[in-house]
Amino acid sequence: MNAVAPAATPARSAPNRLSRLIGSTIGLKLVMAVTGVILSGFVLGHMAGNLKIFEGTEAMASYARLLRFEPALLWLVRLVLLASVVLHIVAWLQLFKRNQEARPKAYRQTTRKEADYASLTMRFSGPFLLLFIIYHLGHLTTGTFHPNFKELDPYHNLVTGLRVLPVAVFYLLAMAALALHLWHGVWSLFQTLGAAQSKQASFARGFATIFTLVVVLGFAAVPLSIMLGIVK
């Protein structure tokens, strides 16, 4: 028998209406997508910045100085990024809880037809990235985890930092995780934001593939070059 379903009632205040958007599964996903766009934009920029290393010590240092040119702006950017990561994670935790509760009893057997490795591992690649981000900030931003840290000498910090093999391997693993995360994530955000796209062949799919390749190969070039001794 059908229970009588309440029709959508008009919400009274704007904050209430906002919370109803954010509270819905679609709204939460929207938060993930918007923060995903910000973070994706950031990784692209960050990667481009990192490539300065191939232009030598001075280029890298001036790039670092440039970033610190306006501390207020820097902090604003950092704040936005931090907020994005936090919102991205909080929204996901909310969704994750709902998704877990949505199927209390698992199937004995599951056959996947269209989900791919990247989409199925978002919940592992994401936390791995978080772990990496924390380590990475401590390693190259604050120097906490860096044995040989020199304030405002990123070239030195990078080269000495990544010369340590386990560290370089960890960075590369993180890039693999980022590849998986972006390949599904960037496609997915088109879908979430409402651009009708097919999963197999579409602009969004092509864009995600190229974007992922550019970002990840760009990032990976640095530890690889250091390991191979191309950058010393």
Partner: peptide, 11 residues
């Protein structure tokens, strides 16, 4: 109703 959210797997 307690359905989960979409993660765009395509299943």
């Amino acid at each position: 109703e307690g359905f989960g959210g979409c993660t765009n797997h395509g299943e």
